[in-house]
Design a protein around this nucleic acid. Structure first.
Length: 468
RNA sequence: GGUCCCAUCGUCUAGCGGUUAGGACACUGGCCUUUCACGUCGGUAACAGGGGUUCAAGUCCCCUUGGGAUCACCA
């Protein structure tokens, strides 16, 4: 069996969005699984709408997700001569013709047809024109068969068929001589030897036209696999109004790429009751047959849950690298001072859903002069609190081993000596250390911050609380 | 409107003729706990409707309904 060749072919008219990323992922997985070739092709035949920024954004998104390609990126704008040859070929063989109808005329006819409840299909005015009107502007149309059926067996959806009479003579070349998408994809997929086309199911309606073009051009028709759409909470196609749709926006929100990949693959694909998949497991277990047929609603909560999972189980050093930019945005640079970042992260891993949350949670470690949460102070600081803290500082200062368990032992000892419960001193200590009522366990925080800094923060608090 | 696709808990899904219809997210009750989380035990919650086929239908067929996509000199 020959090698499978797949491609992801985004048009550079915006960033890499969630849906595109999933399509790319499915292609990538299948290529990896079957030892095939994954090609990246930039569909920029619409020169006016294509931008370099978009190309860069798409490449960046692919890279972030770890979807590397074996060939490309190819640019369709590099292939205009090739497309022109194919147009000329079809023209010469009588499989295409020049159409002199103007865009305005067509538009008027279309609106009229729609208004009268008829289908807005090209009426074939120029189909059998024998004369060539000199240098009058024209488009080239493909002469589509007027009867018969075009069918294909979709790897995901099963068999799909269209009556050819539903298809009209599509334009394959614009007045300005540039080719059109449906024509170009066919030539590119054929010339790149694509064996399987995996794309969004919004392309199902284009497929019969493309099959007809493959046949007219004498190229073998590839297999198709149409992946269902991703919907918003209101069940309409996912778009900006549903929130962020750019893959990179999720990185900026503190998502991990492995969470994104895991989420995306599970949206529409499953493997029994399994939820967590590493890339390696995906490559092993992914099959296009197991992709579902129906559209799925994008669920940010589940994405977040997956993200929390990967943060919880992630390598601390790697997380540190990812956290740095978020800290920097908050004016914190662990290299300048404060506790080691990896120690800080260990206390935050199981309580952060995103890296952004983790950055916020890490702030107090690197803030020597804390601003206390006044409401918390009012609630938890009592007249005797300063005295308790003094005893705690004294006991802590003598602690020979300033790690979690010994610190806890000191704490308990101080409490029993004072005849109080943890709850009578804990909250105040937390405020002294972190400024508020939410933080990792105070024993952990103490170990991370170190004896000297802990005693200093406690002294500051004692001074501050004395007036209460 | 035409064409095409789709249909199990709120959401993602398992199920491939015989199940107390399973798992996950979310929600929720208990436990754990100095906070917030994590963890853990439990709970609420689904086969869109109607006809067939069959001894037997969530599973197969048809219709209805609902949702989505698409009908460009965009991709």
């Amino acid at each position: 069996m020959s090698q499978i060749r797949l491609r992801f072919a985004p048009s550079p008219t915006g960033y890499l969005h969630i849906g595109g990323a999933r399509t790319a992922l499915f292609n990538w997985l299948l290529a990896k699984k079957s030892g095939g070739i994954f090609i990246l092709r930039i569909e920029d035949t619409d020169v006016a709408r294509s931008t370099q920024e978009s190309v860069d954004a798409i490449l960046q998104g692919m890279e972030w997700l770890g979807l590397d390609w074996d060939e490309g990126p190819y640019y369709q704008s590099d292939n205009f001569p090739l497309y022109r040859e194919h147009v000329d070929k079809l023209l010469a063989e009588g499989k295409a013709y020049r159409c002199y109808c103007t865009a305005e005329e067509l538009e008027a006819k279309r609106e009229k047809a729609l208004a009268e409840g008829r289908k807005p299909k090209y009426d074939g005015t120029c189909r059998s024109l024998s004369d060539e009107r000199g240098d009058a502007p024209f488009v080239v149309r493909f002469k589509s068969p007027e009867d018969g059926v075009t069918a294909f067996n979709d790897l995901i959806k099963g068999s799909i068929s269209f009556n050819n009479e539903e298809l009209d003579d599509l334009i394959i070349q614009r007045t300005d001589g540039t080719p059109i998408y449906n024509f170009v994809v066919v030539i590119d997929d054929a010339s790149m030897g694509i064996t399987t086309v995996i794309r969004g199911d919004d392309h199902i309606n284009n497929t019969p036209r493309q099959i007809l073009l493959y046949e007219a051009l004498g190229y073998p028709v590839p297999q198709f696999a149409h992946v269902p759409m991703i919907l918003g909470a209101d069940k309409t196609r996912l778009s900006k109004r549903h929130g962020a749709t750019s893959v990179m926006a999720y990185r900026d929100m503190g998502l991990l790429p492995e969470a994104m990949v895991n989420y995306l693959v599970r949206l529409g694909w499953s493997h029994g009751d399994d939820e967590i998949f590493s890339k390696e497991e995906l490559i092993e277990k992914f099959t296009i047959e197991a992709v579902g047929k129906s559209a799925g609603v994008f669920n940010p909560d589940k994405l977040l849950w997956l993200n929390a999972h990967y943060i919880k189980t992630g390598n601390t050093d790697r997380l540190a690298g990812l956290l740095l930019p978020f800290l920097s945005e908050r004016g914190v640079d662990p290299a300048v001072g404060g506790p080691p970042l990896s120690a800080v992260i260990k206390t935050l891993q199981e309580r952060s859903k995103t890296m952004l949350e983790m950055a916020d949670g890490a702030l107090f470690y690197y803030t020597p002069e804390l601003t206390y949460d006044e409401e918390a102070v009012a609630k938890h600081v009592k007249p005797e609190t300063s005295d308790y803290l003094r005893q705690l500082v004294a006991a802590l200062s003598d602690a020979p081993d300033f790690t979690h368990d010994p610190i806890e032992a000191v704490f308990k000892h101080v409490c029993s000596g004072l005849g109080i419960k943890m709850g009578q001193i804990g909250p105040a200590v937390r405020i002294a250390l972190s400024g508020g009522t939410v933080s990792p366990s105070i024993y952990e925080v103490m170990e991370v911050l170190g004896k000297e800094e802990i005693c200093r923060r406690l002294e500051v608090a004692i001074a501050r609380f004395s007036g209460v």
